[in-house]
Design a protein around this nucleic acid. Structure first.
Lengths: 221, 221
DNA sequence: CGATAGTAGAAAGTTCTGCTATCCATTCTA
DNA sequence: TAGAATGGATAGCAGAACTTTCTACTATCG
């Protein structure tokens, strides 16, 4: 297929495709002559993946390049790819050095029995979040972490099962990308829905806000 | 306190504070003379909140303005504020009209017994995610939704408890902001940690990637 | 009192990102 | 063989988030 068809089928304008080619987000098409190239389904697929990361994940072009680099790495390692992807998706390191936040994270990891190098992106990101929470006067925020962990564990299991059920290494790596980028977006959306649903069920309490009335025995789903 | 102290205590440069004042993210200080203003603790607090949303939440200046608008709304409604904040935090509406994705969301909501107007941000965001997943060839992605919901429900309860335990309406609204913005960031970080932990425990399976070996009886936490 | 530093407010400038537009020399297509 | 499309290169553009520069003060220290 030629670039016009690639554009039509993906909904991405031709100049943008050229831009992605320049930026190395898309492999070059097969040149049939000095100024003609042919693109295959793989290009269309890659293009859609790029758009998903940019539009839904909000990743920058360079972050997308990093992620795809992990995918195209000849010595593909799922571990390494996961690290790269986490780094690309996470907000840039705030570089905070908050003692208390760090202790809160350590204590949390202890409680969970999780082993974790303090250099990992997840660790640093979490310290950054807790430090920020403390700055805005929400020290108690750390109390929510165990709940998050209880929720995150089965998700991680599902994610990993999803990834490991892939037929090929390429598919598995793409599963990591999709699981991370779309997974985060989906989780955020589901949380919004859950909050809406719950706050609807607790309407009485809400309309009575500030009175600190006792919980009206909320029904579980 | 004067602007220099505000800057020192928040770590935000003076010109940036002036910029935020111009953009309406920060209420003006109390003018003591035509070119002197005094700022109070509330300004410092608000400034930190703004930075948290910008740096951690990745919100744009205009999104922050919207969110703060909900906080400063005279007829503060928790419901309304939650909607505004969800909208500000979510990626801009993709405006997809994918029939299948919509049905998947409907079915999901049915299974959960959740009632939801199809106009809500969470609904639209979820349709967008599933449509994108389908575009990149991951129809099975919808299978993960129920797991997400199971995880999201107790989180929503914890969130709401956290919010309702606030002493004042202002605090409650701020709790919604912090719970949403920091909560999403924290959840993403914890997911990363959980994935790392789990993939470490399943190392055997991972180093054997692609062979589709049976799961080596992973230990639970 | 005067020198120095800080301030509000406005306007213009800067940097970065993510595209678009314009060319040109070719090449495919009708 | 005319007209549209293509690859590749370069330049341009709009928006976002600051940052700089300016003016006309004001506060304060010695």
């Amino acid at each position: 297929m030629r670039i016009a068809e690639l554009s039509r089928r993906s909904g991405v304008p031709v100049p943008t495709i050229k831009y992605y080619l320049r930026e190395g987000l898309l492999p070059a098409g097969e040149l049939t002559s000095p100024n003609q190239a042919r693109y295959a389904e793989v290009h269309l697929h890659r293009l859609r993946l790029v758009r998903a990361m940019v539009e839904l994940g909000g990743l920058s072009i360079s972050a997308v390049r990093d992620v795809l680099g992990a995918l195209d790495d000849p010595e593909k390692s799922l571990h390494k790819a996961m690290g790269t992807i986490s780094a690309a998706v996470a907000p840039p390191d705030l570089g905070v050095a908050d003692e208390v936040a760090q202790q809160q994270v350590e204590a949390f990891l202890d409680r969970q029995g999780w082993v974790c190098r303090p250099k990992s992106y997840g660790y640093k990101a979490l310290v950054g979040v807790l430090a920020t929470a403390r700055e805005v006067g929400h020290e108690r925020f750390a109390d929510l972490l165990d709940g998050l962990a209880r929720a995150a564990w089965p998700l991680a299991e599902a994610d990993l099962d999803y990834v490991l059920s892939a037929g090929s290494t390429d598919e598995a790596l793409e599963g990591v990308i999709v699981g991370t980028v779309l997974g985060d977006a989906a989780m955020a959306a589901v949380r919004v829905l859950a909050r809406r649903e719950l706050s609807g069920r607790r309407d009485a309490a809400l309309s009575d806000l500030g009175s600190n009335a006792p919980d009206p025995d909320p029904p579980k789903p």
